[in-house]
Amino acid sequence: MKRWYMLTVVGADRLGIVARLSETLYHGGCNLGEASMARLGGNFSIMLMAQTDTDIEALRLQLAPLARELNLHVHLDRIEAQLHEHVEPNLRITVSGADRAGIVAEVTGALARAGFNILDLYSDVAGTAAKPIYVMIIDGFAPQGAETLEAALAPLRKTGVDLRLTPLDTLIG
């Protein structure tokens, strides 16, 4: 029976990791689902859904030689998963300001308390080493729309963080 696994792979970035990893999975009988790769601080990371009738230990063994050769950390989880379970975001929140510890915790804490579900998050530290700026873009679903979130986020504006809320309305044509 085909089962879904969540495969998380982390390591120093180098050319060809995705190709070698996907070849290994393909030749090992896996079908890939959704995947997201990010290069963070020069490190390679990817999460991907793989479907196979191989059990978790056999899959681990299939990946072991590649992990050794490319010095990758591989983490495998058996997951309950379905494709076509996408949720469309209805709000984008853009956050920026002078970098300091705590921005993410404060913003996402306020969002969670207001019932906002984060569907996608991307953040970066820009500016210069002497004056770093923090930028974060969050897409998610606000069940009650943007208005209730405005109130929840208002206190954060006083701390020098710029917050911009942009409604997202996916056009279907």
């Binding site: 996408h86 469309e88 996916t170 056009l171 044509g173």
Partner: peptide
């Protein structure tokens, strides 16, 4: 953001 009746479940 866009989607399309001819491309279901992708935006």
């Amino acid at each position: 953001r866009e989607g399309c009746l001819s491309v279901p479940d992708f935006t």
